[in-house]
Amino acid sequence: MEDELILKLYFDRNEDAINQTRVKYSRLLHSVAFGILKNHEDSEECENDTYLKAWNTIPPTRPDVLSAFLSRITRNLSLDLYEKMHAAKRGGNEVPLILDELAEIVPYEGMDSEDESQGEELKKILDDFLSELTPDARLIFMRRYWFGDSVQEVSDKLHFGKSKVKMSLLRSRESLKLKLEKEGYVL
């Protein structure tokens, strides 16, 4: 079913909206959650929570891109669950590796409460940063740090050698680090 029709079901408060969303996006959302959690049961939980959150959010929200909107919800829910499960110890899936890589950009510390205005500013910086990357570098970056794919998975999906993926990520991290420093972030 087209996204517009699915959205119409949400706005009509027709519960078939959730079924249709599941039919179309279940696999995608599960893979987004699995990229972070590496556990099918937990991923299914996040997927289901995504449907509930979408139901409670639409309306009034009308997403421009439904797939991105749903993926974002799933990603955040997965990170929430990850933090909850790993509050005491780290390890066991891709997130610790990603955090270690990001620690090249900013220091590793415990999670701080996020300042609302800083969040908006960060969004803009990240959007600018992504816009400046080459299409290939952007895809690699997004697959790794947004979807949580391993380097091998990125390599397989995008048909790039692992060397290219690693070096592209390295360059992008360095570039982001410089950009953040330029914007006054203490790293």
């Binding site: 995608l28 997403p63 421009d64 891109v65 797939s67 991105a68 909107f69 993926s71 974002r72 990603r75 955040n76 990170l79 997130v95 990603i98 955090l99 990001l102 620690a103 950009i105 900013v106 220091p107 590793y108 510390e109 415990g110 999670m111 701080d112 996020e114 800083q118 969040g119 500013e121 960060l122 969004k123 990240l126 959007d127 992504l130 299409p135 952007r138 895809l139 997004m142 697959r143 740090y145 947004w146 979807f147 999906k157 995008l158 953040l180 914007e183 006054g184 972030y185 203490v186 790293l187």
Partner: peptide, 27 residues
């Protein structure tokens, strides 16, 4: 402004839809 790797990872969630869509469609 202070930033750490965990809230940076979280902040990635909010990037523009078009980049998410691009990565989705591509894969």
């Amino acid at each position: 402004k202070k930033l750490n790797n965990e809230n940076l990872l979280r902040a990635f969630s909010d990037v523009d839809d078009k980049y998410i869509e691009e990565a989705l469609n591509y894969s």
